[in-house]
Amino acid sequence: MIAISNLNTCNFIFLMLGLLLHWTPKRLLAAVAKAVPATVGVLIQFPLCGAIATILTTAKAAGGVTVSGQIARLFVSLSTQGSFPLSMGVYSAILGFLIPNLREAKAAHRSGCLPEGAGPLSLVQGEDRLWRVLNPDGDTGRLREARLARSGGQLPPPANPLRRATSRDAVRSWTCRASAR
């Protein structure tokens, strides 16, 4: 039995119905642009970007690995303490060519796949996010710190590979270097 379970399914049905009734993509886009000119980009592109991000982050291969996990592991393996911000900058530039016009869609892709490398604060947030991608069932940094505080420091040290590569000290030194420029 096919069920219309949530808003995503409704969006999906109406998008497909609109596409079929207008018969060609050009006519659908023209009709949407005429009906809601201010939001045409959001209405058509956001569901598609969301679907792509969902495929990247949730579709698992035979080994239980997602595409976003693979990309994240690749960037972690290529990065060092110094090159991590640079590699994130290069990745963002490449992503800018692929998704040039929607900042939110870019952020959705990036948060699904990789940590943001745009600044020192986002580097710390990105580290936690990347840790969640690599270990979906594991503790996040903040959760682990809370548990550590509760247990009086009895927990073993985290096995997060990025703790070595992008520690808070690295972020602090990077901030100092950025502010000195």
Binding site: L19, L20, W23, T24, P25, K26, L29
Partner: peptide
């Protein structure tokens, strides 16, 4: 391609 129904 966007004027043809193939993609649809």
């Amino acid at each position: 391609l966007e004027h043809s129904p193939i993609l649809t």
